[in-house]
Design a protein around this nucleic acid. Structure first.
Lengths: 195, 195
DNA sequence: CGCGACGTTGATTTGCCTCAACGATTGTGG
DNA sequence: CCACAATCGTTGAGGCAAATCAACGTCGCG
């Protein structure tokens, strides 16, 4: 199946898998086309699936007491997304996952993933490394949030995620940075005046 | 060795290890007494060791451009601490790890940990779960930072980490919450007036 | 004892939010 | 293919949460 090629490539970039192993893996995933603004996970439900993004873009976000949304992370092609907290604890998720573009994903159900972990233990490593990456990202983000003002964080975002900042609406970027869209607009105005 | 007992208990709470396995594991760790304000890791150096806290308390923190410190996380007894980012990438750390009390730790060198991963693969699971916990903690923290004001975050901290909030100086808690000690003091005053 | 870390308080400033209003752009159904 | 709604980006006036700066009291400890 053609849309499973990116997953195979992604996995191979970590460890080599035999053809048999790779078949077992890719067969455990299901292709799905996702329209814009479609939800993969809704808060209150348990996250039972892990998603690999083949093409398109997603955001994971929470909603606070006053009804405001806050983006926790984005995921574009060749990235993974799931509410790890809910997935591993089995508790209802506090977060939502939603597409920001027409997208295509590969999804694997929890029980199939656990079966893969048993049958092909070395695939554990891929998921361990993936979480480590996301952990590091969050750690940097906490540090950055406490260290710098919003305009610096915006500049850092542009530099760190050029491919994302091109395609995302500013409202989504503002939500990720923890500021209002209005204030981001003012930051952008200031920057063009200077640059 | 008596001070390795807590580690053995911790590991057993996840998976069972044979006596032989457990010996191999505990022998890979070295006991170390740590005095107050002693550093286990200094920014600029590569984090080559993973630490298990037997007793006492530590903080991991970064220093921003203006010289201000920001606490990323605390670790008390039965918790792990290391700069995972530096440990796994091999790059110099941006963070510091420092004791806040007289403490006792078990430390394992990277090469010994990797040897354990090979010889006793199932121990991987313990470290995977540990990182997942810390990932979830960070995720909640980002969400909380963007959602609520400092007094709410302070109350949440008291509730979530009662054993830490008892023993930590308020300056350290303020640094963790991302506010100044002065402002935390004002928050506390307001709360006592109300309560 | 005297020094350094810690906690507190007040006056002032600032980064960012709130609310309201208004173009521009996109998209969607008739 | 146009009309209209919805989303997005911008601008301005005013307000609030938290920082800054400075001063001072307390406590533990070498």
């Amino acid at each position: 199946m053609n849309s499973k090629r990116p997953l195979a490539n992604f996995l191979e970039s970590f460890i080599h898998f035999s053809e048999e192993e790779m078949n077992l893996i890719t067969e455990s995933f299901e292709v799905e086309k996702i329209s814009k603004r479609q939800k993969l996970l809704e808060s209150g439900k348990v996250c039972k699936e892990y998603f690999f993004v083949v093409r398109g873009c997603f955001r994971m976000y929470g909603i606070d007491d006053r009804g405001f949304e806050h983006n926790i992370q984005f995921a574009a092609q060749n990235d993974w997304i799931a509410d790890i907290s809910s997935f591993y604890t089995g508790k209802p998720s506090l977060l939502n996952i939603e597409s920001l573009e027409t997208s295509e994903i590969l999804k694997i159900h929890q029980k199939d993933l656990y079966r893969l972990f048993e049958k092909i233990p070395k695939i554990n490593r891929v998921f361990k490394v993936t979480i480590e990456h996301k952990y590091i990202e969050l750690q940097n983000r906490v540090m950055q949030t406490f260290s710098s003002t919003a305009d610096q964080r915006y500049l850092d975002f542009l530099e760190q995620y050029p491919s994302l900042s091109n395609r995302l609406p500013n409202t989504q970027i503002a939500s990720y940075l923890g500021i209002t869209p209005e204030f981001l607009s003012k930051i952008r105005k200031n920057l063009t005046n200077k640059g």
